[in-house]
Design a protein around this nucleic acid. Structure first.
Lengths: 252, 252
DNA sequence: GTACAGCCTTGACGCGAATCAAGGACCAGC
DNA sequence: GCTGGTCCTTGATTCGCGTCAAGGCTGTAC
């Protein structure tokens, strides 16, 4: 038996990867929802040229940490990441979960340093996109520039939805909204929208939704009792989508 | 007596303004903190050429409404705006306050339609920046492209700070943090950081911070009793900055 | 001046989620 | 197998803020 992965388990930044894992934007099955969206094949090739692929992150390994110098944004290729900030008193605010096809790291652009940390919730692979290269390419490719503006704008509107959720909605509504969000994002990737495994812990969910673990757990129990969800540890099955939607009770 | 301002008081979108109010980016005293930041004078002229200035908005007049088609972003030149979303049940979530030199409307880029409404809290003037023109100019001027990326990224990090505030901090801490934020933004514009008039109502503050009017009012009373602030209706005087900071108890 | 509307403040009370506490389930390592 | 650690669940209690209610203040129109 041969060990292929040298330098495994390091907790620092990514090491460059000697081989490319035979993946490129042209043949990646996420290219319809990821950055290459709206690019023509010639342009995709150019984008592909600036992207660096490295060995996967292990569970709980950091992609970057709060305060690290900002160099790149990252497209998630597989697995899930969480972005979070740590407050003075050591508590954690999760600012987002990132699934395959989604871009993480855009909060580092404003100060040239990352405003949050990003950590793998399970084994995860990312495509590193050096930002200065992306900027140059964006100047040449209006579609890319526009798409990246749109991605940043989407991050803004999603954050604003979370703000509303935290400010106006009950614990039940918050958890229901998160389940629906995960369901929708799964559907985008042609996965089941009614049955999935949560990549994050109850603590992470609580830290994202502004709730304690106990409350999250109680909400799951309640939903199970109402036959809206079947919950088996991290396995979730949505039994009643409409029930879940009316429980989420989302504004506009 | 001659009336110069025709078409006053309309509640719709901005009417083009026949004259330019003798303002341009080159001589605007906000150009050190606004979009022209980091541009050379020749470039500033080009930026100035795409900007449309129109007559001021009256108090409570809308700049745009949720769902309106997205055409432009806006730089605040004077006065204050609030951005907000209305939930199904008619409640209002304020997503931000915008002071002179700040850019509002970036949440419309992702869907080509505004995700929130923007309304003047007092008489306010804005510079309208048509987005397609801004995109073209950005392709030609790397500094402008970068700066606009940074502005969007800052909006993201600020939203994330609000998320943390809503999720982790008490009513006292939230109000203290807002007062400090306003104080800082005043300082940026060379105004007093310790004495100012709040442009927004208690209701707006509550809708921004996820609190009720009553709670906001109680917090102000408490701060006054502790000699941290002097509150006279909308006039605020910060008596003890350090007290206010420790009350805000902000993470990282 | 008076009247009215909108905004702000203060008090009494109740509810929902945090906190505190205990125990069970699952997994990795031995 | 057993052990220890982490994660999850459930119950009892507490507390901060929302809700309800009443009244005062400010500004504007007349």
């Amino acid at each position: 038996m041969t060990i292929h992965l040298a330098d495994a388990g390091g907790s620092g930044t990514l090491a460059p990867c000697p081989h490319d894992y035979q993946v490129n934007c042209g043949n990646c099955r996420l290219n319809g929802i990821c950055l290459p969206l709206a690019l023509e094949s010639g342009d995709i090739q150019q984008l592909d040229d600036i992207i660096q692929r490295s060995k996967p992150l292990q569970k709980s390994q950091h992609l970057y940490r709060e305060g690290d110098g900002f160099q790149s944004v990252y497209a998630v290729r597989s697995g899930t990441l969480k972005a979070y900030k740590t407050t003075d008193d050591g508590r954690e605010q999760v600012t987002g979960f990132y699934f395959p096809g989604e871009i993480v790291g855009m909060d580092g652009i404003s100060n040239n340093s990352h405003a949050s940390s990003a950590k793998a919730l399970e084994t995860a692979a990312v495509c590193e996109i050096p930002f200065t290269s992306l900027e140059k390419l964006s100047s040449l490719m209006p579609n890319l520039q526009r798409h990246f503006f749109q991605l940043m704008s989407r991050e803004i509107t999603e954050d604003q939805q979370l703000i509303t959720l935290l400010s106006k909605n009950s614990a039940d509504e918050r958890v229901a909204a998160l389940m629906l969000s995960i369901s929708t994002r799964n559907a985008r990737r042609k996965l089941s929208s009614t049955q999935f495994r949560l990549p994050m812990s109850r603590v992470d969910i609580g830290n994202y939704l502004g709730l304690t673990v106990e409350t999250v757990s109680r909400v799951f129990s309640r939903m199970q009792k109402m036959d809206i969800l079947r919950v088996d540890n991290k396995e979730i099955q949505i039994l009643d989508v409409h029930g879940l939607q009316s429980m989420a009770n989302l504004g506009s």
